[in-house]
């Protein structure tokens, strides 16, 4: 890698860092309870919960396991589970 003049950086390039490695607890979504309010997506600090084929799914590459989504889910459809690695 050659350095850029004035240390300029490309947009969105933190994606190469998979912060999922920080995680202890992993969010597990019960899609039957989900009412698709999208609050989990809105509040996620990692911007890593998205609708995939109509279901809200956390991207475990980046999810730090903070549990904000589980706390904010109005239907308690997300459970934080100790992750076995």
């Amino acid at each position: 890698m050659k350095l850029t003049v004035a240390a300029l950086v490309e947009p969105g390039s933190t994606r190469i860092t998979k912060t999922g490695a920080w995680r202890t607890f992993v969010p597990v979504v019960d899609h039957k309870k989900c009412i698709k309010c999208s609050l989990c997506e809105i509040y996620c600090p990692e911007s890593c919960i998205h609708q995939v084929d109509g279901l809200f799914v956390p991207d475990l590459d980046y999810c730090k396991g903070c549990s904000v989504c589980a706390h904010e889910c109005p239907r308690k459809a997300i459970e934080m589970v100790l992750e076995e690695k």
């Binding site: 390039s13 600090p45 990692e46 911007s47 903070c66």
Partner: peptide
Amino acid sequence: QNLFAPGHRACAGCAMPT
């Protein structure tokens, strides 16, 4: 639209990235 990419180093659960 997501204009603040994941992979940033904020503490887990930080209010700032949101």
